[in-house]
Design a protein around this nucleic acid. Structure first.
Lengths: 143, 143
DNA sequence: TTAATTGATATCAATATAGTATCAGTTATA
DNA sequence: TATAACTGATACTATATTGATATCAATTAA
């Protein structure tokens, strides 16, 4: 069971790269080669992020992409929702006898509680947080 | 993004049913009709659970399935691992420049921490817990 | 003018998930 | 002891999702 698909994975890494080069446009080609992603696939991911106002683009020579908002305001949860749809445990577990009436289904509460926990955890990880951790990591040298 | 697939969903519901009828064999046919699951599909799910010693079976007339262990010892996490494979966030996020060396990758820690949280949450939900919640729920009547 | 770029969109391939079909073997019971 | 109700094993098909490619028009710095 893989929680993050390639699209979400590539999106996160692309955003981290854009965050690291704040203020200048970075081309899809540069991201793809540096991060070892299939170029046309990444293109699609980037366009999707434009549609969701996470990044902006500039066409033509010297063009590329740039973050559209503060890295701390881009959470992994949002990226998952964009590329993988809303996180849901299952459609409606426990039907029929066990759960004849949705509103009375006590088991549903348990499931929803976990959804909240998962949402919360993913929401906490932002591009900004990853950038800071990355930076701290770069300072760590093997002894 | 659906966290539980049909197989895991059906497995949980079948186990809850077996737990509710402790001590007697329940046939796949009975489970399928009561829980509205495709019969041959459920058969496969049940056989997989036999292989993992979660349930035992009895062939022939009056045969069926029965829990092989205490309901409190069967957790949803284990079921997810059986039917959906080990929960992992992504293969190895952040490769190349951003994560040239796996052991030094600080971002990886963040991801692994969430994996732990998710594992822990799913581990907490056992068939026994669901049975108790179900029972409490049945006592709740609309006013 | 041209090469480097993105915008838009159609299509394909690979994999995972969901579901079906078949037949042999076992067993309670009439 | 025949038979119907069962599971065991396994091969197969269908559908959905994920991953990836291809193409061409529009834009822009140099």
């Amino acid at each position: 069971m893989k929680v993050l698909t390639k699209k979400t994975d590539y999106a996160i890494r692309a955003l981290v790269m854009l965050g690291a080069q704040k203020g200048s446009y970075v081309s899809a080609k540069a991201i793809a080669s540096e991060q070892d992603m299939p170029y046309p696939f990444l293109r699609g991911v980037l366009q999707e992020m434009i549609r969701h106002d996470l990044i902006v683009s500039k066409e033509g020579v010297q063009g590329g992409f740039m973050l559209a908002k503060d890295p701390d305001e881009i959470g992994v949860r949002q990226l998952i929702e964009i590329f993988q749809g809303t996180v849901q445990i299952s459609e409606c577990m426990f039907r029929k006898q066990i759960c004849a009436n949705r509103s009375r289904c006590v088991l549903r509460h348990e499931i929803m509680r976990i959804e909240q926990v998962v949402h919360h955890e993913f929401e906490q990880i932002t591009i900004g947080k990853l950038l800071r951790k990355l930076h701290a990591g770069e300072n760590l040298r093997p002894a």
